[in-house]
Design a protein around this nucleic acid. Sequence first.
DNA 1: CAGCAGATTGACT
DNA 2: GTCAATCTGCTGC
Length: 222
Amino acid sequence: MSNAKLPRDFYTRASVLAIARDLLGQRLVVAGAGGRGRVAGIIVETEAYRGPQDRASHAHGGRRTARTETMYRIGGTAYVYFVYGMHHQFNVVTNVADVPHAILVRALEPVEGLASMRRRWPAPPPVLTNGPGKLCRALGIDRALDGADLLGDRVWIERGAPPAPRAIARGPRIGIDYAGPWAARPWRFWIRGNPFASRRDAPARPTASAPRLPGRAARPRG
DNA sequence: CAGCAGATTGACT
DNA sequence: GTCAATCTGCTGC
């Protein structure tokens, strides 16, 4: 089935970095509600947060609070929180229960329900889903979905077409300067050159399996 | 219970 | 490049 939900064992694997990479090309879906049809987008950018050891993680040092409790659930759970007084952030919990790994979905290519997405703004931006806060607004994701089972019927991820290994770029995570050296770790993954990624000019480097291309890698798209 | 920083965004110099 | 918006969850008193 091309539209099968990703199974539990996709999410419970031990390597949050591998899962962050493997989410690229998959399809994030939010069920229709309130007279709206379902909305969906292809994941084009992710960031991994590796639990207690990772200074940038909400669960750094094993921190366990009302908010972070969701991160300790089993892989395949949605972790949604609210920041900056106005934006929600959608994360995928990974690994087994009590290991608080999570992956922030930073950007999507919108593919279903574009009209529904635009209706969430009085004046819709030209690109609806090129950032973690924007994609939550476009898809109607808020804290009501915190803790939702990704194998359930409210929000889920369907199998899509993974990008070729050489099309995957990685680099430092965004917006975590407070995390010191952890901010420099290349734990952000995106589809190289994708026009829906949140930062098209960010420093990119080849993945281990990809050869460096000569010359024009950073050339702007036409 | 006051103070503050935040896994962002859009407007503006 | 700078900066305000806007509010929650935390920390520390």
